[in-house]
Simulated assay, not measured.
Amino acid sequence: MRTEPNLTRVERVFARLDREPERPANLNVPRMSRHRVVLFGATLAFYLAIVVAVVTTSRLVAFDWEVMFFRPYQQWPQIHAFLDYWVVLGQRGPTAVMVMAWLGWRSWRQHTLRPLLTFGAALLLLNITVGAAKLGMGRLGPHYATTIGSNEMWGGGDIFPSGHTANAVVTWGILAYLASTPRARRWLSAASAVISLSVGLTTVYLGTHWLSDVFLGWTAGLLILLALPWVEPLITLVEARIFAVRDLWRSRRTGAAPEPAPAGAPAMVKGPSAAEEPATREPVGAARVVRAPGLLAPGPHTTRSERTPVTPAGSRRPPHADRVPRGATSARPVAGG
């Protein structure tokens, strides 16, 4: 009776993942289409509108103060402990390690560096753009605010836009960006949107960010995801260079140098053309070896199946000195009288 081993849930998951084909044929690299350009332009306009609204101390800044005075962490203290852990999904260090481990496995499975290089490019753009905006505007957070109703700009802070929110959008959104099927892209897009929205609102609940910080963080992360197709040619070039260096290193490591010929051994001399056979140079004083003549007669030779049977002419008996052929006189003298 044939019995199959009982697999655990983790083993069944890895068994299903192992069935994925290498280099999926439907792995389409996103391009900067007209629709994506329109979305990028609209998102950039929304980004600038939020910055202008905060700089000019508009109604958005007043709403920030209203939410801060509401103190959500005091209204619902029972979820405070859970949200302290949930906000980690927006921290760059832990999330980068988790996502990089998954994308590293995908890169090894598909024999391509594109997932890791795309994630690295997204994090680099995130650090440059969001970091420059934080340091350039220098907004203070709710816990360090000095004047009620002010925008707290250029006070030496670093919370505008929200780094947790922007990092959640990019880190989890990159999984949807690199998805190989439309269905997986839809599900991952929905999951990343829920995580990034919840992480941003969690920072408002904890009182570490203004609500406008979260709005700008969402917009900054979305701008990076929309702009990634512009970076795809550079990612392809870097991947090709890395593979070229790897192949060169492998060839140098596995390639064996030709061994020197021993002393007195015949050396091969290259002929004047590639069609001629290479000649051998004989050492001085060596005896010339005379080859035996060929056993076959010159001329074209056919296979045995193409030969026609030939009947031998004459007698098959070997010649004998004492025998005389019939009809011929003997050369010996006749004895007797």
Rank of each mutant, 00 (worst) to 15 (best):
S107T: 08
H111I: 05
G131E: 14
T118E: 11
G131V: 11
K134S: 02
G93K: 08
V130P: 02
P94M: 04
A96I: 08
G90K: 00
R114S: 14
T112A: 13
L124Q: 02
R92T: 08
P161T: 04
M137W: 06
V99M: 12
G90S: 00
N167P: 02
A121H: 02
P115I: 05
W105T: 03
G149S: 12
V130Y: 11
T95R: 02
I128S: 04
G131P: 03
L89T: 00
L113I: 06
G155S: 07
H111Y: 06
P94Q: 02
V130Q: 10
L103D: 13
M100S: 15
V99N: 02
Q91M: 05
L135V: 12
L103Y: 09
L123D: 02
G120N: 05
L117H: 03
A133C: 12
G136K: 01
F160H: 01
A133N: 04
A133F: 13
Q110K: 04
T95I: 14
M153H: 01
G136Y: 02
I159C: 09
L103H: 09
V99A: 08
A133K: 00
Q91L: 10
V99I: 15
G141N: 04
L117G: 04
P94I: 01
I148N: 07
A132R: 01
L140Q: 08
L116P: 06
H143G: 04
Q110D: 15
V169K: 07
A132G: 03
A168T: 01
N151M: 04
G163P: 02
T112Y: 12
W108Q: 12
V169G: 06
L89N: 00
V87G: 00
T95P: 05
W154N: 13
L117Q: 10
D158C: 01
N127Q: 12
T165A: 10
L89H: 00
